[in-house]
């Protein structure tokens, strides 16, 4: 048995395509129309996201400008944190959409593994400072909002920290579960391919 025996074996080759079907509405022509529509939809989605993002940013900036004191610092930090997190997730989604399928197989698999991983080591370097900014902003707001009721008691801040950390842990758990459901199978397939070729 030689591998050559299966070279261009007609059982593996594509059958002839009836010429009349190539350009019909349901064939290639139909696919092209679908692809063009998907391209347009993608562009519209990005434009809508950008418009909503900048409108919200403007509204929030006006709100912050009218506030003074420590509370205003808290709101500013919170707003900055949310903006960073939005930009981060937007970038992550765009990156997955823009996977370069024309890269050599080995390079493609390595890049795809990084993109399909829920949070990579490099991501943590971005996420942790962002969470720090949001947490500090929230801390400012909670502390200076409740200081008049609790005098100098640290309890509001302690309760806030417990709440904040719990939200992060829950968010991480729920996000990972959702990500795994969406991308887990493909990531396992990619990892297997890379491992088998080490």
């Amino acid at each position: 048995m030689e591998l050559e025996e299966f070279k261009m074996n007609d059982r593996f080759s594509a059958p002839n395509v009836p010429e009349k079907n190539v350009n019909n509405a349901n064939g290639l022509g139909g696919l092209i129309e679908e692809l063009k529509a998907a391209d347009q939809k993608g562009k519209r989605l990005v434009s809508r996201f950008m418009i909503i993002f900048f409108v919200l940013l403007g509204v929030y900036a006006i709100q912050i400008a009218t506030k003074n004191g420590p509370l205003s610092i808290g709101y500013e930090l919170l707003a900055a944190g949310f903006i960073f997190i939005l930009v981060y997730f937007f970038r992550k989604i765009i990156l997955i959409r823009r996977i370069d399928y024309s890269a050599p197989v080995i390079i493609f698999l390595r890049k795809a593994e990084k993109r399909y991983t829920f949070i990579t080591a490099a991501d943590w370097f971005i996420i942790i400072p962002i969470l720090g900014v949001i947490g500090t902003g929230g801390g400012y707001i909670v502390y200076y909002s409740f200081i008049k009721y609790f005098e100098d008691s640290p309890w509001p801040l302690v309760i806030y920290i417990i709440f904040f950390v719990s939200v992060i842990i829950f968010g991480f758990w729920a996000g990972k579960k959702d990500w795994k459901k969406e991308n887990g199978v493909i990531l396992d397939k990619i990892k297997k391919s890379i491992d088998e070729n080490r």
Binding site: Y101, S102, A103, P104, V105, I190
Partner: peptide, 11 residues
């Protein structure tokens, strides 16, 4: 390349 990469990640 595109075809093979698609097959490798196709679900």
């Amino acid at each position: 390349r595109v075809t093979v990469n698609t097959c490798l990640t196709f679900i």
